[in-house]
Write a protein that binds this DNA or RNA. Structure first.
Length: 258
DNA sequence: ATGGCTTTAAAATAAAGA
């Protein structure tokens, strides 16, 4: 069972690329971030034509998440995180798919540091932790995946010095991420590759892709019940180099059947 | 170099991203 995440940076601008990737990679579940459309603009019919059914949480102009499943409709469990009723950002969507709890997240970027946006990022990380502890207590196979906007380790970035001032690498961001791991969640790609050097994002600017100036911020955290079933993971880097590509590449995780 | 690109929203610029 392949479960993937892809920050597509605009589902309208990226639809041909997205369909192409679904067709080639054919994940059982695909979590999308930054769909950047209101609910009514979501191209559900284009996915249905490929055999995928979807749920989504859109927003005008930016943010927005979706969960696609091959041959079935994800059963929605929750949209949005508790704790800040006034928070209208569309960044969290959770569903049951094929016997697995799947939470699709788009964590706030948090730049500049310091500032209100960074404060929001840290609060959001705390709210996420609260929800993940609830999921963990259910003792079900679970995966919380998406764009975490956190570079967990120095070997997850082409140059720690170049990114030192960025919200993605602040000690507070890393500590919050580390607390999730301490709670018992497994960083799927990080665990398979402790040596680092794997990127999921390359900036559009200054030829970052050509220089391989990237970093790893798209993650999947696994509950113990699912971590035992992990058999592989990877980044579809070739999709980053295609015409009109997102600045993120798709990341996939393969699991043994239960 | 708070920039460099890119998308969205909306009608020329501005916000947001990371």
């Amino acid at each position: 069972m392949k479960i993937a995440t892809f920050n597509i940076n605009g589902i309208k601008a990226r639809l041909p690329r997205l369909i192409e990737w679904l067709d080639e990679a054919r994940p059982a579940v695909a979590c999308l971030q930054e769909i950047k459309t209101q609910d009514e603009g979501f191209p559900a019919k284009d996915f249905e034509a490929l055999g995928y059914q979807a749920i989504w949480h859109g927003q005008k102009g930016f943010n927005g998440v979706a969960i696609l499943a091959d041959g079935s409709l994800p059963v929605e469990v929750r949209r949005g995180l508790a704790g800040e009723p006034e928070d209208e950002h569309s960044r969290y969507l959770e569903a049951e798919v094929g016997g697995v709890r799947v939470a699709c997240i788009y964590l706030p970027n948090g730049n500049p540091v310091p500032g209100l946006k960074f404060d929001y990022k840290l609060r959001w990380l705390n709210r996420l932790r609260t929800r993940m502890r609830e999921i963990a207590a259910e003792e079900v196979p679970a995966i919380v995946l998406g764009d975490y906007n956190v570079i967990p380790r120095d070997n997850d970035v082409w140059s720690p010095a170049a990114m030192a001032a960025d919200a993605l690498m602040q000690p507070e961001s890393r500590d919050a991420y580390a607390r999730l791991l301490a709670d018992g969640w497994t960083d799927a790609l990080g665990t398979l590759h402790p040596e680092g050097g794997i990127w999921t994002y390359w900036d559009y600017q200054t030829g970052a892709l050509q220089r391989d100036h990237g970093f790893r911020i798209d993650h999947a955290l696994l509950s113990p019940e699912l971590a035992d079933r992990l058999v592989g993971a990877g980044v579809d880097k070739d999709h980053r180099a295609r015409e009109k590509a997102s600045d993120h590449a798709p990341v996939w995780f393969e699991f043994r059947e239960a």
